[in-house]
Design a binder for these strands. Sequence first.
DNA 1: TATTGTTATACTCTATAACTATA
DNA 2: TATAGTTATAGAGTATAACAATA
Lengths: 139, 139
Amino acid sequence: MITRLARQAELALAEVELSLPQYRLLTFLELQGRMASKLADDLAVSRPSVTALADGLVARGLVERRSSLLDRRRVEHVLTDAGRGLLAEADARLDRRLEAIASYLDGRDGQVALDGLTSWKEALDAHRAARLRPVKEPT
Amino acid sequence: MITRLARQAELALAEVELSLPQYRLLTFLELQGRMASKLADDLAVSRPSVTALADGLVARGLVERRSSLLDRRRVEHVLTDAGRGLLAEADARLDRRLEAIASYLDGRDGQVALDGLTSWKEALDAHRAARLRPVKEPT
DNA sequence: TATTGTTATACTCTATAACTATA
DNA sequence: TATAGTTATAGAGTATAACAATA
């Protein structure tokens, strides 16, 4: 089911001309700037994919790239005001679409379905942390 | 969150060399053959996208195309035995991945998250039915 | 040498427009 | 005329391999 829901999310984001991967990148920039390698880990894509993804967002003025002063190999990515604004709009469209779909469920079930999605954030964060910093097997 | 979960689903499916859209198509063929236009509606993609998507699956022997005897314009798509087998394997990989992620939630919450996803099927089916056959506005 | 990021290249998914075949 | 499907074409996301710059 997750795959069909994902397609609906993709369609909702298309309303603001954002692809699903672009949206994912923006959400990771919402709270803090990120260097490309970090973003690749966060998004679970290759580094060249991050370059390509960011290219489009930079061209549209949604993201800004800055060379790190501490380590000139690094490129920090930050949301512009326009990027922050579009992200808010995208979030709203996405929520609206999911709520519209959930509304077909009887009574309380719709809210349960929506809340269920929210709880996945915690799981994904924990899973990502474990993936990036795998538990050392005891010898 | 749905978008990050979708990426994890994509990675799980990549283990059996299926893309997320290909998997979606296979799931719609599981119960019955479908003509291309119907698939386009089900998948919420254009008809040319269905052609391209099916091309790859036919080339791999997972799906078979048959001209309809009743209306020679129509092309029915059916799962081959290989297709049915790979779909089962894909389902297993997907479930395993989602369960692994949900396992990072405390106790019962993981099961609630998984069950929440299941309930979306009903909502999506109802939403699709309404989308294809919109309620006539009373004049 | 190792790490960060980009470029080169190729494949898939997607859409729109134009086309063929059939109804 | 209308519908089912494909072909042509173009743009985006993805990966791997090779490269440049910096540490």
